[in-house]
Design a protein around this nucleic acid. Structure first.
Lengths: 145, 145
DNA sequence: CAACGGCTTCAAGTATGCTTGAAGTCAATG
DNA sequence: CATTGACTTCAAGCATACTTGAAGCCGTTG
């Protein structure tokens, strides 16, 4: 049937330290699994759940946010749509910022300016971020090398 | 001429707390600015520099990494290419992960499964992350709702 | 000239996300 | 039956990134 995993097996399959898994459980991020003579036994589905946590953590969400996110699925059914929407918007912003950063760095890589901070492309990208990523393309005339 | 900014002005222009600016200076992230009767006076260019730090911090780099990045531009001229390349690769990975997360969450938003963890699309995205984002498109046949 | 706002330093505190160590339990193995 | 290895709890420690508080200096203003 469903093969139960020890915490060590779950750790090695997900790349997350066993101590971290216990910590996550303590925080309520992971449900307390079944026990066999005191030891945790996880269902195979736990791998996916841990994966979700890793995924969200790696893209910048705090464990509290992830907990709220995970806890919001299915149960009362209300509230999760707003939460998903917010998370989605946050992710979109993160992606946009990362792309601006990527562009700025990539530009700096090929840019002839001795000091990258003297390059208007770089500065424009930074300024856009500082301005709250608002839609000001008008004055950001990019020079091409 | 060049209007010098007090730490408070720099803080309000960049959205970074004055205490954080002092902390960054202490870490060597920002150069120690000129002083007028003990108080810091920043050149206008400091806004851009702080912007770079904010940009890189927000996309997930640690202050140490940012310090190394900033310190590497122009001077001896060697080493910065490797660093830029690495940062670029890291950014690409972050962007890719964020997009996977975005897709997974967006899918969950529209997905009819009661529990999103039962949805194969979601699980595939997670599995891809766990697998180290390797190129396994072959078996990830996405169902369409 | 006294008070005020904004700056200064320095030390200590806070939040997040863990890791590490001590001491013990348990099942299997030689 | 004693040892081994993986697990257990609990408390304490650590790294990162700041914030907060105390005590004080400086320039302007009423």
């Amino acid at each position: 049937m469903g093969e139960q995993l020890t915490i060590g097996e779950l750790a090695s399959r997900t790349g997350v330290a066993a101590s971290a898994l216990r910590y996550w459980e303590e925080l309520g991020l992971l449900p307390a699994p079944a026990r066999v003579s005191g030891q945790r036994r996880y269902p195979p589905s736990a791998v996916g759940l841990v994966g979700v946590v890793v995924l969200l953590r790696d893209v910048g969400f705090t464990l509290r946010e992830i907990k709220a996110f995970i806890a919001s699925r299915s149960p009362t059914g209300e509230g999760w749509r707003e939460l998903y929407q917010r998370k989605l918007a946050e992710l979109d912003q993160r992606i946009a910022q990362a792309q601006v950063a990527r562009t700025a760095i990539a530009h700096g890589f090929a840019c002839p300016h001795k000091d990258i901070f003297e390059c208007s492309n770089f500065a424009n990208g930074v300024a856009a971020i500082l301005a709250g990523c608002s839609l000001e393309e008008a004055h950001s005339q990019v020079h091409s090398h």
